Amino acid sequence: MPGRDDDQLVGTFPYIPKQERAQKKREALLESGRFLFLKNGYEQTTAKDIASHAGVATGTFYRYFNDKRQLLLSIFGDQLEKLLPPVPDWFKKNPELFLASLLDKHYKRLNEIGIDRVIPELLPKDPELSEVISEARRNLHARIRSGLVLAQEKGLTWKDLDLDTVTWAIILIIEHGRKKVDSSEEPLDLLNMAKVICRLVFSPDVLTNFPQEAYEEE
């Protein structure tokens, strides 16, 4: 069983037990893996470390997962979509305030999940995982660009706007938002971030027509 941790990340999901006791062990392993990956880094964490932190034998780890990569894949599971930047809605009464509310939810969700901080460590060594994430980002790009096309057709955007470039700029601004906190130790001003993004899209005359009341969920 040792040595399996060198296998590729992308693959089939492990069997999920039905018994409550077994499910709790599996969940403990998942949580321990997430904690140790974030604390020590993926490469420095072993299956034995994860099992020990979860309070189970190493053999129990291999009952539920083939290796630590499969465990990480299980942590990702349905979380990948939640790790991606939100899609702005340019047709809200105030796109700036609406986007700021989306960003607030997005960054809170990232902090809760945490596992996105492990991704940069893995991508150079896991081409299959890299392709999975790249495909997800391409789909995100298409969704954001589709909204920009509609906004452009309605005459809301800059007339000479390069939609592909602006779409990638929006994604990069949101993806790297937390680096500002890490470097400056200042909290993110989400409304100002949303305003910067909207100024990439809208001309000044459009921006002046936005209502300034606080955004409320519709």
Score class of each variant (00 low, 15 high):
residue 106 H to T: 04
residue 61 F to P: 10
residue 2 P to G: 08
residue 49 D to S: 10
residue 142 A to E: 15
residue 11 G to I: 02
residue 99 L to G: 09
residue 87 V to F: 09
residue 132 V to S: 04
residue 20 E to K: 14
residue 132 V to L: 10
residue 80 L to Y: 00
residue 125 K to Y: 14
residue 159 K to L: 13
residue 75 I to C: 13
residue 117 R to C: 11
residue 59 G to W: 02
residue 129 L to Q: 00
residue 123 L to K: 00
residue 78 D to G: 13
residue 5 D to I: 02
residue 80 L to D: 05
residue 83 L to T: 02
residue 210 F to A: 08
residue 34 R to N: 00
residue 108 K to N: 14
residue 5 D to A: 05
residue 27 E to G: 00
residue 152 Q to C: 04
residue 69 R to M: 01
residue 2 P to M: 08
residue 147 G to N: 14
residue 82 K to S: 15
residue 82 K to G: 06
residue 212 Q to M: 11
residue 69 R to A: 13
residue 5 D to T: 07
residue 26 R to F: 03
residue 187 P to Y: 11
residue 96 E to R: 15
residue 65 F to C: 06
residue 133 I to S: 00
residue 62 Y to F: 15
residue 108 K to M: 11
residue 182 D to M: 12
residue 161 L to D: 03
residue 23 Q to D: 03
residue 144 I to T: 09
residue 90 W to P: 02
residue 17 P to Y: 04
residue 47 A to D: 03
residue 206 V to T: 15
residue 102 L to G: 00
residue 20 E to P: 10
residue 129 L to Y: 12
residue 11 G to K: 09
residue 78 D to I: 05
residue 107 Y to D: 08
residue 88 P to R: 04
residue 182 D to A: 15
residue 173 I to D: 06
residue 71 L to Q: 10
residue 122 L to N: 01
residue 77 G to F: 05
residue 56 V to F: 09
residue 149 V to T: 09
residue 2 P to H: 06
residue 151 A to I: 08
residue 145 R to H: 11
residue 184 S to W: 02
residue 160 D to F: 00
residue 190 L to R: 01
residue 62 Y to T: 12
residue 134 S to E: 11
residue 129 L to D: 00
residue 147 G to T: 01
residue 100 A to H: 08
residue 136 A to M: 01
residue 3 G to F: 08
residue 166 V to C: 08
residue 161 L to S: 02
residue 207 L to V: 08
residue 80 L to A: 06
residue 26 R to V: 01
residue 168 W to T: 12
residue 6 D to M: 04
residue 108 K to S: 12
residue 109 R to Y: 00
residue 152 Q to V: 00
residue 115 I to W: 06
residue 58 T to H: 05
residue 193 M to Y: 11
residue 148 L to D: 05
residue 132 V to H: 01
residue 20 E to L: 13
residue 162 D to I: 01
residue 162 D to T: 02
residue 196 V to D: 14
residue 99 L to A: 09
residue 89 D to Q: 07
residue 65 F to E: 04
residue 57 A to N: 11
residue 73 L to R: 13
residue 43 E to N: 00
residue 117 R to I: 05
